Simulated assay, not measured.
Amino acid sequence: MAITTDPPPTRTAVDPPVRATDQSRSAGARDRTFGFMLAAPALALFLVVAVYPLAAGVATSFYDQSLIRPDRRFVGLGNYAAVWPDFVDRLGTTLVFSGLATVFPMLVGLALAVLLNARLRGRGLLRGALMLPWLLPGVVVSFLWAWIFNDSYGVINHLLSVAGLPEADFLGRPATAMATVVIAKTWNSFPWVMVVALAALQSLPREQLEAAALDGATRAQRFRHVSLPHLAGPLALVAMLEFIYNFGSFDMIFVMTGGGPGDSTMTLAVSLYRYAFTEFSLGRAAAMGVLWLVALSAVCAGYFLLDKKLESR
């Protein structure tokens, strides 16, 4: 009698269970890929518009290159040595202009903000009117104030002649040229300082002012001990941003004085323009631009440190 035995049962292959961590990793990888695809166009535009010109400018600063010659010659740090004395002088002028063109708009904007924060009839219309200087382009403002201070047909000299006073060449004298540019820049910049200060004043709790008034504090004391500390943070950031903008300002000085008379208003921006488009020396202009970038980076570092310090309070 034959004995038959059944074959042993075969086991079917079973896929290992998918872990939740593997699923989360694959989802995270897909999200990163999708995010990179979204950022790729902006990144490519940034590389083309910002990084490539910066790298090309740094490379050009090591060459004797001109707009009127097709060839160029490697000179190493020769361009930096040639422009260094001018850079030191122009840096001082730029710091003077940036400081004055920051302080005066801050003072005017703060004073007008305090005035407009009071209960005045028609203050809404006045707020809108005071915003007009900020809406005008810098070139338009420059031509406007150059006409006002013109020595032949300017409004200021006309008023001086009517009053029987001697006329003056405001834009043609080193002692007054910087002052005229600062006045024009103040008129153009005070509105945004005014807006920030006014917004900060209106966010100040009225209870604090009322409590100080009940304690016998005068209006000046309330402003000094209650309102001004509330304004310190926003105004500090506005002042630093305004200083950075003025540090790179070009249009107003170039249109009104061209850096003159002499070199009394010659800032780094105007000096770089002269190297490139008057002397046609691209190498020296690039070297001046690199030094200017280093100085501006130091100013921006101060802004970030101030911002971080104010946020930690």
Score class of each variant (00 low, 15 high):
186 T>C: 04
187 W>M: 08
190 F>P: 10
191 P>L: 06
191 P>I: 02
191 P>K: 06
192 W>A: 00
192 W>D: 00
193 V>G: 02
194 M>R: 02
194 M>N: 05
194 M>D: 10
195 V>M: 15
195 V>Q: 09
195 V>N: 09
196 V>E: 09
196 V>I: 15
197 A>K: 11
200 A>D: 12
201 L>N: 11
201 L>H: 12
201 L>D: 13
202 Q>F: 03
202 Q>M: 12
202 Q>H: 11
203 S>Q: 15
203 S>C: 10
203 S>W: 12
203 S>H: 15
204 L>F: 10
204 L>I: 01
205 P>S: 08
205 P>F: 03
205 P>I: 02
205 P>M: 04
205 P>T: 01
205 P>Y: 04
205 P>K: 02
206 R>E: 15
207 E>I: 03
207 E>P: 00
207 E>T: 12
209 L>W: 05
209 L>N: 09
210 E>W: 07
211 A>R: 01
212 A>L: 04
212 A>D: 10
212 A>I: 01
212 A>Q: 02
213 A>H: 13
214 L>S: 11
214 L>Q: 03
214 L>K: 00
216 G>I: 04
217 A>V: 03
217 A>I: 03
218 T>H: 03
218 T>F: 03
218 T>N: 05
218 T>Q: 05
220 A>R: 13
221 Q>D: 08
221 Q>V: 03
221 Q>R: 15
222 R>Y: 04
222 R>H: 06
223 F>Y: 14
223 F>S: 04
223 F>R: 07
225 H>R: 12
226 V>T: 09
226 V>F: 03
226 V>M: 07
227 S>N: 09
227 S>K: 08
228 L>H: 05
228 L>R: 08
229 P>N: 01
230 H>E: 11
230 H>C: 08
231 L>C: 08
232 A>P: 07
232 A>I: 02
232 A>H: 11
233 G>M: 12
233 G>L: 10
234 P>L: 04
234 P>I: 06
236 A>S: 15
236 A>F: 01
236 A>Q: 07
237 L>M: 15
237 L>K: 00
238 V>G: 00
238 V>F: 00
238 V>L: 13
